[in-house]
Computed example of a mutant assay.
Amino acid sequence: MTRVTLSVAALFAGSIVCAPHANAADPAADAAARRESAVQTASFTVKFTEFRAAGSETEGHKPLPSGRLPRPMPPNDKTEEWLDTLAFGAGKVRFDDNRPLVAGNTGKLIARKMVFASDGRLSRYHFPEGASVGPDGFIKQDKKIPFVRQIDLAPLTMTVRGMSPDTTYEILSQLAPTGRTQALEGTACAEYKFTQGNHGQTEFWLDPKVDYLPRRIQITHRDGSFDRLDIQYSPHDVVGWIPTTWNRTRLSSSGKILISVKATVERVKINAPIPDSDFEIQFQ
């Protein structure tokens, strides 16, 4: 029997600082609000291919008390593929996460499945495969699901829920233009940065030719490493533009490639009916 617990603890909790209203004078916030109003429901199936270099998990770690460096994890280069699905309703979200887990003691990739769903009132976390300890499901008295706000889903969440702080990577009304531009895909993309946040230095380059969606996102971490995400779009008759592929690369402070992720949207549905039951996991 599936064990279910009601949790109000901050397990998986994320730090979210939100602006209550869009900045109507800013074209990026205005475009995000327009897209969100046009999209009542959305569902995406995305294929991910991830490369992890040997030692990428322990890169930059401090020596052990013995003075030795930690054993490199993973011990060898790893490449893995999987499919994820992400769905949105009116104030609702579901994320089926099939990313393999990296075992901390061996560095091996472990197949597992996690399902996160919010009905706009409660959030449900279900671990039907690969849960090693504790209950395989629980409910939180909180509608937020921090896992949806990860960088690898940012192209999707910022496209259809760019003004929803509970689901998007960063709400576009919270970004501040710097006045600088960078040429990407033949367009002078406007540079934006966080006005608030705890992710280190994070920069966005928004493309006016694709409704001020991000062409590039770059996070510079405190240790000098950084993640760079580059995104491609295709026209869409409802949303205007939909991300089709994106690539994320994490480099160490010395320029070594630690992780590279390629994402390809294999299926997308906009404003197709989604049953309420999809956002309400029923534990047995």
Rank of each mutant, 00 (worst) to 15 (best):
residue 203 E to Y: 12
residue 187 T to W: 00
residue 218 Q to I: 13
residue 227 D to L: 11
residue 186 G to D: 02
residue 215 R to P: 01
residue 190 A to I: 09
residue 214 P to C: 11
residue 219 I to Q: 15
residue 190 A to N: 08
residue 168 T to F: 01
residue 215 R to V: 01
residue 229 L to Y: 02
residue 194 F to P: 05
residue 201 Q to K: 15
residue 204 F to W: 14
residue 217 I to P: 03
residue 191 E to G: 02
residue 190 A to C: 07
residue 230 D to W: 01
residue 176 A to F: 03
residue 190 A to L: 07
residue 181 T to A: 06
residue 226 F to D: 06
residue 175 L to T: 13
residue 181 T to V: 12
residue 173 S to C: 12
residue 199 H to E: 14
residue 206 L to G: 07
residue 188 A to F: 01
residue 181 T to L: 03
residue 229 L to V: 13
residue 185 E to V: 03
residue 209 K to G: 03
residue 208 P to F: 07
residue 181 T to D: 04
residue 232 Q to I: 06
residue 222 R to F: 06
residue 193 K to G: 06
residue 208 P to Y: 06
residue 166 D to F: 05
residue 203 E to Q: 15
residue 200 G to M: 10
residue 181 T to W: 01
residue 198 N to F: 11
residue 187 T to P: 01
residue 210 V to N: 11
residue 227 D to W: 11
residue 172 L to Q: 13
residue 222 R to V: 10
residue 214 P to Q: 09
residue 179 G to E: 03
residue 183 A to C: 11
residue 170 E to S: 13
residue 185 E to P: 00
residue 188 A to C: 01
residue 212 Y to P: 03
residue 180 R to Q: 12
residue 226 F to S: 14
residue 197 G to F: 05
residue 189 C to D: 05
residue 219 I to A: 13
residue 228 R to I: 08
residue 166 D to S: 14
residue 205 W to H: 09
residue 199 H to L: 15
residue 209 K to V: 03
residue 229 L to T: 13
residue 210 V to P: 01
residue 223 D to W: 04
residue 169 Y to N: 08
residue 189 C to G: 04
residue 174 Q to P: 00
residue 204 F to P: 03
residue 230 D to S: 14
residue 172 L to I: 14
residue 221 H to F: 11
residue 230 D to I: 11
residue 196 Q to I: 07
residue 182 Q to P: 00
residue 185 E to F: 09
residue 208 P to E: 08
residue 202 T to P: 01
residue 170 E to Y: 11
residue 185 E to Q: 13
residue 177 P to G: 12
residue 192 Y to R: 07
residue 172 L to D: 04
residue 203 E to V: 15
residue 196 Q to T: 13
residue 211 D to V: 02
residue 192 Y to Q: 08
residue 199 H to I: 11
residue 232 Q to G: 14
residue 175 L to D: 03
residue 201 Q to D: 14
residue 192 Y to I: 05
residue 210 V to M: 04
residue 171 I to E: 10
residue 200 G to Q: 07
residue 191 E to S: 03
residue 232 Q to D: 15
residue 228 R to F: 00
residue 186 G to C: 09
residue 180 R to K: 14
residue 211 D to Q: 12
residue 212 Y to E: 02
residue 167 T to I: 11
residue 183 A to I: 09
residue 216 R to F: 04
residue 182 Q to F: 05
residue 222 R to T: 09
residue 220 T to P: 00
residue 219 I to P: 02
residue 188 A to D: 11
residue 169 Y to T: 06
residue 203 E to I: 13
residue 213 L to S: 02
residue 171 I to W: 00
residue 199 H to Q: 15
residue 188 A to S: 12
residue 224 G to F: 04
residue 203 E to P: 02
residue 168 T to L: 00
residue 184 L to A: 06
residue 166 D to G: 06
